[in-house]
């Protein structure tokens, strides 16, 4: 859109609208933040009120009940493993399917479609089968019971992005490298991988977000409290005979604030990277 004089007013108006819109949009988060300082009875009895005092009890309880530090570490480990490995294997397979030469072209196309099938499958449908597989494979209660399914759910999406991205690369690149006497690992590592930067960020961000917040698979496959991820955090307040809403909210705040801070710092890269990767692809 060009910035002609006629639309200056339009720009102003849309600017104001944007500001108001953003404020309204943020309201639920802000409200939750306030709620985390209220006591349980305040929440029930006087929903609209602001907290009486800045009550830190809820946070104390939340920290006591949840081992938040450990959950962060667990989530981080699972995320790094599954996203890292997921990226690696799909990088290799997408490149192979896109840029390498198959004797059997049909096979190549067929494999591509095969990998795309997973796009439409909701992971919840697979919950029970995944847990049967985990049990049969003797993986139950290990970190791999989570990491492997997470990698699997990334395959389709990563393939879509990376395949399209590779398609857009000019053929000359590889030819030049080959003339220089490159072997396959060198080609992939030194040449292609660096060029994949825009998609890398997108892939990593999409997938880390997914893993970070994934709940159903984690809830079914993890039993040891010591291995719980962040997403299990909120569910831990639920109990047979008592629940602590203020505590849940405080725990939620404790969980999302670092997430938001992390996001705040990396925001530029995340958004820009997504932009480049997702749409170019």
């Amino acid at each position: 859109m060009t910035n002609s004089a006629g639309s200056k007013l339009g720009r102003r108006i849309s600017g104001i609208v944007l500001a108001i819109f953003t404020l309204i949009w943020m309201f639920p988060l802000v409200w939750m933040f306030f709620m985390s300082f209220k006591t349980n009875s305040e929440i029930y009895a006087a929903p609209l009120s602001l907290p009486q005092h800045l009550n830190l009890d809820n946070f104390a309880r939340a920290l006591e009940t949840l081992n938040i530090g450990r959950m962060y570490v667990n989530t981080l480990i699972v995320a790094v493993l599954s996203v890292g490995l997921g990226f690696l294997v799909t990088f290799l397979s997408s490149y192979a399917l896109c840029r390498m030469v198959f004797r059997n072209k049909k096979l190549q196309r067929g494999l591509l479609r095969f990998f795309q099938l997973g796009l439409m499958i909701s992971p919840f449908i697979l919950l029970f089968p995944i847990y049967r597989i985990t049990v049969q494979g003797n993986l139950y209660n290990s970190i791999w019971s989570l990491v492997l399914p997470y990698i699997a759910t990334q395959v389709s999406f990563n393939t879509l992005l990376m395949y399209n991205f590779f398609k857009g690369l000019p053929a000359e690149i590889e030819e030049a490298a080959l003339i220089d006497g490159c072997n396959l690992p060198q080609l992939l590592g030194r040449l292609i991988l660096p060029m994949t930067k825009p998609v890398v960020v997108t892939v990593i961000v999409f997938n880390v977000l997914y893993v970070w917040n994934e709940y159903p698979i984690a809830s079914v496959l993890l039993r040891d409290e010591s291995m719980y991820t962040l997403s299990m955090g909120a569910s831990m307040f639920k109990g047979a005979y008592s629940v602590d809403n203020a505590g849940i909210i405080a725990a939620s705040v404790l969980i999302i604030v670092p997430e938001l801070i992390f996001y705040g710092f990396l925001q530029r890269y995340i958004v820009d990277g997504m932009v480049a990767g997702a749409v170019k692809g």
Binding site: N67, R70, I77, L81, G84, E225, S226, M227
Partner: peptide, 26 residues
């Protein structure tokens, strides 16, 4: 960073007691 996390992860997994209410070994 990845290596560090993996190291940290292995340490926590091996050394740590169950983070929850367990008594005794995991």
């Amino acid at each position: 960073l990845i290596l560090a996390t993996l190291l940290l992860g292995t340490l926590t997994a091996c050394g740590g007691n169950a983070g929850g209410k367990g008594e005794g070994a995991a």
